[in-house]
């Protein structure tokens, strides 16, 4: 099951990166988000899977689609100058090198052994909330302030004219 979902996720990600139209790219990204939510379910992270669908596939992608709709972009990306193609190729090679190193690091065998035993109710809302509101209360409050600042910033930036 993991391999099917993972394959779909990688394929959709490739479609997203190579697609010319922003709307199709957004749709492929939604597919990737859903695949990742499925993988989170496999990993027993039920709350995070639900949040992934609600926050990413729901809120953030709708925001993206609204902006694409609002801007009504005429895609002019087809004509890329010759020297830019060279730069792009260089970047792809550099990223490929980093990727090979990441895989080497993963395959090196220094990964920690799987812990035995099981937390009661691993990944459920109750257990996540218990940790979030005891050990991680300060980061939680800081996150809420960050969201408030983001709301104010977004409104001010998107406003037509500031008097």
């Amino acid at each position: 099951m993991f391999y099917i979902i993972g394959g779909v996720a990688v394929l959709s990600a490739l479609i997203m990166v190579t697609n010319k139209k922003p709307v199709s790219a957004a749709m492929s990204l939604i597919v990737v988000m859903f695949c990742l939510a499925g993988i989170y379910v496999i990993l027993d992270a039920h709350l995070i899977a639900a949040l992934q669908i609600i926050v990413y596939a729901g809120a953030i992608m709708v925001l993206f689609l609204f902006v694409i709709m609002l801007l009504n972009i005429q895609e002019k990306e087809g004509r890329v100058a010759k020297h830019k193609i060279f730069f792009q190729f260089t970047w792809i090679l550099a990223t490929g090198y980093v990727f090979i190193n990441m895989v080497k690091l993963i395959g090196a065998g220094d990964l920690p052994a799987r812990m035995e035993g099981n937390i009661d109710g691993f990944g459920t809302t109750r257990v996540v909330a218990e940790i979030l509101f005891t050990d991680f209360l300060l980061p939680f409050e800081i996150a809420s302030i960050l969201l408030l600042a983001a709301i104010v910033g977004a409104v001010i930036l998107a406003k037509a004219k500031i008097e």
Binding site: V17, Q88, I92, F99
Partner: peptide
């Protein structure tokens, strides 16, 4: 790692700010 690399390639090669 594969998904991260695909994302990084996209950031470096695409010129549309939304993508």
């Amino acid at each position: 790692a594969v998904l991260f690399s695909i994302g990084a390639v996209g950031v470096f090669t695409r010129r549309n700010a939304l993508i």
